[in-house]
Design a binder for these strands. Structure first.
Lengths: 136, 136
DNA sequence: ATAATTGTAATATTTATTGTTACATATAAA
DNA sequence: TTTATATGTAACAATAAATATTACAATTAT
């Protein structure tokens, strides 16, 4: 993950958990993270699609959690924003005439499954509520 | 990790383990991975600096393992090539006037330590020898 | 009606990654 | 001692990924 998507999503959700039952605007959230509001709205779109967040349009609109923050784990967040495997990408076209090149991507895939799963397991025991309580 | 460095390094080291006691050239290795030889030489430079590989210059030169393949774990490889945390980058300048923005990077850092460590622990029980034996 | 807000497309900018060319230096072998 | 074959590395080019920006239609409370 050579991007800030997990950090951004977690920041957004922490604010929504911190101000549960309030509707926060993307502009206000963007001011806390210090990024462009459109980035925030895009990420909120992804989080809505994942069922973690809901929105209300128009004046006095904004975003709020769509689940109790105890029911959201950091694994849920990671899974919605993750774009790559922990160990990175495979090389595209290893030489099929080489005994190693021929099979390495299949073996790497197995390794990716194991390692990604171990990260998810670790994140599954951490709730958003618990994380957000850091900021009392 | 939105790059192929781990895949490339593991491929290189698997070849060196597969042909232990031979000196393999960067051109030959590059032909197996199907990438530019200079990429391979650069990565080999990093692996040498980490003490995993040695080189011999000139005609009949090449690269070989500098440790027995049982003494190299996938964690050693990951640690030498990893450039980012598993969960990605932090946002650079969260708003210090916001209770969440003020502290989130410190909390993210703690999380990064835990998660990165869990990946390393998982990789530490996997040796290069064992991985290379996949390709008999 | 007005003001504030989401949702999204289009585009620009910046940063990261990968690839390429070139060549100095080293060394085995003819 | 010359030649062929490597490493080591710098400089630059090309491609891809990530982030930022502008613009505006659609929505809704006041």
């Amino acid at each position: 993950m050579n991007n800030t998507r997990f950090a951004t999503a977690l920041h957004i959700l922490t604010l929504l958990a911190y101000k549960e039952h309030e509707w926060l605007s993307s502009d206000w959230i963007a001011g806390s993270i210090n990024v462009n509001p459109v980035i925030v709205r895009k990420e909120l779109g992804v989080l809505m699609h994942a069922g973690l967040v809901k929105s209300r349009k128009g004046k006095e609109g904004g975003y709020a959690l769509d689940k109790n923050s105890v029911a959201i784990t950091l694994a849920d967040i990671y899974l919605t924003v993750k774009t790559t495997n922990v160990l990175g990408k495979k090389n595209l076209l290893p030489n099929p005439k080489c005994p190693v090149g021929k099979d390495i991507n299949k073996k790497l895939e197995g390794l990716n499954t194991v390692i990604d799963q171990s990260v998810i397991k670790e994140l599954q025991c951490k709730t958003l509520k618990n994380f957000a309580e850091n900021f009392h």
